[in-house]
Amino acid sequence: MAAGGDHGSPDSYRSPLASRYASPEMCFVFSDRYKFRTWRQLWLWLAEAEQTLGLPITDEQIQEMKSNLENIDFKMAAEEEKRLRHDVMAHVHTFGHCCPKAAGIIHLGATSCYVGDNTDLIILRNALDLLLPKLARVISRLADFAKERASLPTLGFTHFQPAQLTTVGKRCCLWIQDLCMDLQNLKRVRDDLRFRGVKGTTGTQASFLQLFEGDDHKVEQLDKMVTEKAGFKRAFIITGQTYTRKVDIEVLSVLASLGASVHKICTDIRLLANLKEMEEPFEKQQIGSSAMPYKRNPMRSERCCSLARHLMTLVMDPLQTASVQWFERTLDDSANRRICLAEAFLTADTILNTLQNISEGLVVYPKVIERRIRQELPFMATENIIMAMVKAGGSRQDCHEKIRVLSQQAASVVKQEGGDNDLIERIQVDAYFSPIHSQLDHLLDPSSFTGRASQQVQRFLEEEVYPLLKPYESVMKVKAELCL
């Protein structure tokens, strides 16, 4: 049975990233139509530049190519590739079939990587351009969430054990800070992308030097003109047959890092959902379990974690691919890159769409948070109580021993009897502590235990987050809708 299948058929496997999760716009960027249309555009740009620099290419040939950029006979191309065992030459023939007058000058002087690699770089750039505003929107939604809850005390956790208090907004800023680093890295790697350009079979530009009869300047002009037509500021000066596969490492490393950030955020949300302090959106008709109707599973956060793990592992592909590119190139890269580049971007696209949807509907339960604080705060307040007693004339050592005994009794009630923490009640009825009984409410005010959390939130948002989001103001209103 021949390899390949009808990918629109229910009898043929289709990647869930495309069929179930990723956005239509990201799927289109990695589609065959987008790819092969870009090949034709690159052939047109090459012909236009070659004509401008004096090669015998007519206006009629150029116009014929322009008129057929979208006229792609995919069936013919597939048949040609089956016959020739070469995808680029299959599309040269297919393009030439609908451009008979231009057929002889299509791909003039070029090698397969002229269309293959340059198209990949265009796709990487455009895919990054799709991700950047999506990530900015996630940051914006979380920034709104953090600002609104900047002063809401909550129990902090280290080692997932109760620690000092923080605020809900401050905790959210930990998430935002990681995503801001990801946004900066995505922008950097996007701006650092260079075009492969017009380089020939081993990167020496020998074929173009021959076409222009040894004119170095025209060869350099050709490279520059096509690079500018493709919208790049610069091209690699040095290439082998391909652009260095280190570029793929750079791009997928940034995406993998984004995956790590999203995994951490969504894990926190899942843990908070278990504590009943916070939940992701839950639709009115949504079913959490087929057997347990009360369940409210954090399905979206779980999906993000599941896909983020996949995204983090994909960076190993370009690392290994770059390491086995012998001399000017081997074909070890080809099949692998067809999979890992598309999957990385479709996965990143999915987790950003999902995280935006989550961040637009996060639900906080202040009463649950308050109750958990009441359970733990008495123990945390013991040092403040000791200091207040010393100020009232008591002995630190005597007070410490009193607190120690009462704390152990209260802990026994919590752990052995399943009761509430009654340390404060014990202190309130103990005559030894009568000098500070009137101060206990103040000493137990949760806001006095959150330090500068709310001020940190305000400063972080104003100095770091809002300036970073400013270039994306025009796209901030787009909502994230999930079908599944």
Rank of each mutant, 00 (worst) to 15 (best):
H7P: 12
G8Q: 15
D11P: 15
D11N: 14
D11Q: 09
D11V: 09
D11R: 11
R20P: 00
S23G: 10
F28D: 10
F28G: 07
D32S: 15
R33L: 12
L44K: 06
W45T: 06
L46E: 05
E48K: 05
I57A: 05
D59I: 10
Q61G: 12
I62H: 04
Q63R: 11
N68S: 10
N68H: 11
E80N: 12
H91N: 13
H97V: 15
P100A: 10
G104I: 08
G109F: 01
V115E: 06
D117I: 00
T119C: 15
L121G: 08
A127D: 00
R137P: 13
V138H: 10
D144V: 15
K147E: 12
H159F: 02
P162G: 05
L165D: 00
K170D: 00
C172L: 06
L179A: 12
M181N: 09
M181L: 12
D182Q: 02
K187Y: 12
V189M: 13
D192K: 09
L193S: 07
R196Y: 09
T202I: 08
L211P: 07
G214S: 10
D215I: 07
D215L: 08
V219K: 04
L222Q: 02
F236D: 05
G240A: 11
Q241M: 04
Q241P: 00
R245G: 01
R245E: 01
K246Y: 03
V247P: 02
V254G: 11
S257E: 09
R270G: 02
N274G: 04
K276S: 05
A291Y: 03
Y294M: 03
K295R: 00
P298A: 14
C305G: 09
H310E: 04
M312Y: 06
M312G: 04
T313D: 04
V315K: 04
A335I: 03
N336M: 08
R337P: 01
E343M: 05
L346K: 05
T347Y: 07
D349L: 03
L355V: 12
L355Q: 08
V364N: 04
V364I: 10
K367Y: 07
F379A: 03
A381I: 09
T382E: 03
E383Q: 00
I385E: 03
I386F: 03
G393A: 07
R396G: 03
R404G: 08
R404L: 10
S407W: 00
A410S: 10
A411M: 07
V413M: 13
V414Y: 04
G419I: 07
L423P: 04
I424Y: 15
F433Q: 03
I436F: 04
H437T: 10
L440A: 07
S454F: 14
P467K: 08
L469E: 03
S474A: 15
K479L: 05
